[in-house]
Measured scan of single mutants.
Amino acid sequence: DESNKPILLPNESQSFERSVQLLDQIPSYDTHKIAVLYVGEGQSNSELAILSNEHGSYRYTEFLTGLGRLIELKDCQPDKVYLGGLDVCGEDGQFTYCWHDDIMQAVFHIATLMPTKDVDKHRCDKKRHLGNDFVSIVYNDSGEDFKLGTIKGQFNFVHVIVTPLDYECNLVSLQCRKDMEGLVDTSVAKIVSDRNLPFVARQMALHANMASQVHHSRSNPTDIYPSKWIARLRHIKRLRQRICEEAAYSNPSLPLVHPPSHSKAPAQTPAEPTPGYEVGQRKRLISSVEDFTE
């Protein structure tokens, strides 16, 4: 099969070098950035008060330690540790928490760990991170309901609301924008112990962030949302095809390698009803078989 044979790379090609550099910018793992907010007593309706908090309760602090690993920003190499735009020179604080497994990295933009500057009256330095995160974990210690939209931002799609209760338990629920209701189930609340709260809140936030990324990708319907490693695979396959075309153009005697095509017509299947918005969006999480067989 010609399409699977190794090909020689061009010795000097600026377009090839640019493509390789672009490939280096696509990590081999999925990345997520999640905002974390603490809401104190009497702050449920005040964005400024929430963003001005420099610490929270003892249970909130224990919750943070379970979310991930504490890292010092100045020691991080952005090409190895995903920071979601946090500055490593102290502009966004000294520490944050991050978490990773074999296929993804997540960083938490924690408002109480970011510096509260006197010259920044409206807390814009914090909002440029927190307001651009799709998902926020809100530790609501106010005793009042927290409403979506209290923290203004164009991309605040989903809130994971943590409400501490007695007996070391917590109520965990989801809020989302109306255009996200087909992807996020907000109907079920959970009672979770303090011990298990970081794991549950983190998983709910990661799932909500993946759904938000799919939702946000609708602005470019021709580019369905893939995982990062599938995006790398697609980029490599496009690069291979372009090299083959350039080689055939410079030397017409060489065969032009095309991806294999299936001449056999697909079997006719009964027509199915058109899937609704929710089903269609969830299918976009699934990769096409052509990603692996071309």
Rank of each mutant, 00 (worst) to 15 (best):
Y97W: 04
P27N: 06
E47T: 02
H32E: 02
K33C: 14
E144K: 06
D223M: 07
T269E: 11
K117W: 12
G149V: 03
Y139T: 00
A201P: 01
Y277L: 11
D125S: 12
V20I: 15
M180D: 01
E181Y: 07
E245C: 06
D30W: 05
A231P: 12
L254M: 11
A35D: 02
P115S: 05
V257C: 10
R59D: 00
V162Y: 01
N140R: 00
K126S: 05
S227C: 08
V192Y: 03
R282W: 05
V184H: 02
R284K: 14
I224S: 10
T112A: 02
H159M: 14
C176Y: 05
N53Q: 02
G153F: 07
S46L: 03
D101G: 02
I286V: 10
P266Y: 08
K152M: 09
D75G: 12
K80M: 04
S13I: 07
E12A: 05
N196M: 04
S217H: 14
L130I: 15
M180K: 04
Y58I: 08
I224K: 10
G66I: 01
V184Q: 03
T65C: 13
T274V: 12
H129E: 07
I71H: 07
E181G: 07
A35C: 04
S253M: 15
E91G: 13
K80E: 12
A106Y: 05
T274M: 10
I243E: 10
N156R: 02
L206K: 00
L67W: 00
Q241W: 07
P273G: 10
E272D: 11
C169Q: 09
D145L: 04
I26C: 06
P259Q: 14
H215A: 11
K264I: 10
L113K: 05
R128L: 07
D24A: 05
V107E: 14
C169H: 04
V158S: 02
V257H: 14
Y38S: 00
F16V: 14
C76N: 11
N53W: 00
D179V: 05
K147W: 05
D145E: 11
A211N: 02
S193M: 02
N251M: 13
V20G: 06
N53S: 02
R218F: 07
E294T: 11
V200R: 00
V119H: 09
L8V: 12
K5P: 15
Y139H: 00
F108C: 01
S52A: 14
S28G: 13
L113I: 03
T116L: 11
H122D: 15
E91N: 12
N251A: 12
A211W: 05
F146C: 03
D194G: 00
L171K: 04
R232N: 11
D141S: 01
S44D: 03
L197N: 00
S173P: 01
M104L: 15
E47A: 04
C176A: 14
W229N: 12
K178Y: 10
S46T: 03
V135S: 02
A205G: 02
G90C: 07
A211I: 06
P221A: 06
N156W: 02
E246D: 12
S227N: 12
Y167I: 02
P259S: 13
D30L: 04
T112C: 01
Q281S: 10
H216E: 08
S19W: 15
Q154C: 14
K152F: 08
T222C: 07
A205I: 00
V257P: 12
M104R: 02
L239I: 10
M104W: 13
S15R: 09
L254R: 13
E278Q: 11
G280H: 07
G42M: 03
E168R: 05
H109A: 03
R59Q: 00
G85F: 03
Q281W: 07
A248N: 08
K152R: 11
E278K: 06
T222W: 06
Q154L: 14
L285C: 09
L22E: 15
H262F: 08
H235G: 07
Q25N: 11
D185S: 04
H215Y: 14
G85P: 14
Y60S: 00
L8E: 15
D120V: 06
T293W: 04
D30Y: 04
G93D: 07
G280P: 14
M210E: 01
I71N: 07
L148S: 15
W99G: 03
T150R: 02
T112L: 00
D1K: 09
V184N: 02
G56F: 01
L174R: 01
W229F: 04
L83I: 07
V158W: 01
I110E: 04
V279P: 14
L64E: 01
V160L: 04
S219Q: 13
L8Q: 14
L8W: 09
I161C: 05
G66W: 00
M210G: 01
V192P: 00
S13L: 10
F199W: 03
N11Q: 11
G131K: 14
L22N: 08
I151T: 03
D30V: 05
E17R: 12
E91Q: 13
S288R: 11
S19M: 15
R284E: 15
R282M: 12
P221T: 10
G149Y: 03
G143T: 03
S261Y: 09
N132E: 13
K283F: 09
L148E: 15
F199M: 04
F134K: 03
C124R: 15
T163R: 04
L197I: 03
I286H: 09
I236A: 06
S57H: 01
V192A: 02
V36W: 00
R284L: 08
D194N: 04
P27Q: 08
N45C: 06
F63Q: 00
I71P: 09
E246L: 08
Q43R: 01
P266A: 08
K5Y: 14
L239T: 06
H129F: 13
D166H: 04
L165G: 02
Y29V: 08
F146I: 06
H122R: 08
F146N: 01
K283R: 12
H159A: 15
P266H: 09
R59V: 00
C169D: 13
Q213C: 08
E17T: 08
M204W: 04
L171Q: 05
E54L: 03
N170K: 01
G40D: 04
S28R: 09
E17H: 09
I110V: 13
T269H: 10
E2R: 09
H100W: 12
R202M: 04
Y225M: 13
V162D: 00
R234Y: 04
T293L: 05
L206A: 01
R69M: 14
Q25V: 04
G93M: 14
L171R: 05
T65L: 07
N53E: 02
V158Y: 03
I224W: 06
E168V: 01
D179R: 04
L197K: 00
P27C: 06
P78D: 12
D101P: 02
Y225G: 13
G153W: 09
R218E: 10
N251Q: 13
Q241L: 06
L83A: 14
D166K: 02
C76H: 14
I50H: 02
L9P: 10
S193C: 04
D24Y: 02
V257Q: 15
L197F: 00
D30M: 05
K237N: 15
L37Q: 01
A205W: 01
R238F: 10
E62D: 08
D24M: 02
T96G: 12
G90M: 05
E91S: 13
L73W: 15
D133G: 13
